[in-house]
């Protein structure tokens, strides 16, 4: 087996486990964003002035397209914080897996793959709901799936670094509260980045913003900004690679010595 094939076996294991309780898991991944979509899109959205929104967009579509990316971020992050930590400490699954031909770095790549798949599926629910409620979603949104996978892989890898350094579950709160939540609030999911004025350009290279920009263009059937595409193909994979290495280094120390 080649390296990627070995990582895929790890991912298959996780997918099998997921299937065991997919109902509960999907409910959490889908129900929550749906509630937000209802409250913000249909409730508050009705009160919004549309002049600040891109042409042809109502707030439901604006917020919903941002949600596609943020659901991917949250789902991938939570999976590789709580799920991976449980596998490492409580269940000693990492220990069992590295006693096979699979190496620690291959296990971590498998974890990131799984987070990417699971999170991308969860985020797919958002455009489906938008279509169901009658929003004019462009079929081009399907082209956004690879971008979602890359974004989720990135956040899955970042979460592994945090997980690897965490002494316990409580420690994740630093990352969730100080990194993920601010990113969720300030990456253009809720309001256009133009509001930041001169800082808007800086806000556009925040990882979640990159994903939001892409999905928002595609939902309208437009070609996404070149900058977002390039960053998705370079910055996110590059940082993912770096994060996976950092996570591996820490876990090597922690699990093996």
């Amino acid at each position: 087996m080649k390296r990627l094939a070995r990582s895929w076996r790890v991912c298959l294991r996780h997918l099998y486990m997921w299937r065991q309780h997919a109902g509960a898991s999907l409910a959490g991944n889908v129900a929550e964003p749906l509630l937000y979509l209802l409250i913000l899109g249909f409730g508050m959205g009705e009160m919004m002035d549309r002049s600040a929104l891109p042409e042809g967009m109502n707030y439901r579509l604006f917020y919903g397209s941002g949600l596609i990316a943020s659901v991917a971020m949250m789902s991938a992050s939570f999976e590789n914080l709580f799920g991976a930590f449980t596998r490492m400490m409580g269940q000693r699954t990492y220990e069992a897996m590295i006693a096979t031909p699979i190496s620690l770095s291959e296990v971590l790549v498998g974890d990131a793959m799984y987070a990417a798949i699971k999170a991308s599926l969860a985020s797919l629910a958002v455009p489906v709901v938008l279509v169901v409620v009658g929003e004019p979603v462009s079929p081009m949104i399907l082209l956004g799936l690879p971008a979602t996978v890359i974004l989720a892989f990135f956040f899955g890898s970042a979460a592994l670094v945090v997980m690897a350094h965490s002494p316990d579950y409580g420690w994740f709160n630093y990352y969730i509260t100080l990194v993920l939540t601010p990113m969720f609030l300030f990456s253009g999911v809720f309001f256009p980045l133009e509001i930041f004025g001169p800082y808007a350009e800086a806000a556009r290279i925040v990882p979640l913003s990159i994903g939001v920009e892409i999905q928002r263009s595609l939902v309208l059937g437009q070609v996404p900004p070149m900058q977002s595409i390039i960053l998705t193909l370079t910055l996110l994979p590059g940082l993912s690679w770096l994060f996976l290495r950092l996570a591996r280094r820490k876990l090597q120390q922690r699990l093996i010595g």
Binding site: M1, A5, R6, R9, V10, L12, R13, Y16, M17, Q20, Q91, R92, T93, E95, A96, M97, A99, T100, P101, I102
Partner: peptide, 27 residues
């Protein structure tokens, strides 16, 4: 083959699936 100290079986998997998934790790 590695026999660790203590138990690191997958708690959420049946005995059969524990072995089956492990066999997959070996290709």
């Amino acid at each position: 083959g590695v026999v660790p100290q203590g138990d690191n079986l997958d708690p959420d998997l049946s005995a059969q699936m524990n072995l089956q998934i492990y066999a997959r790790f070996f290709g």
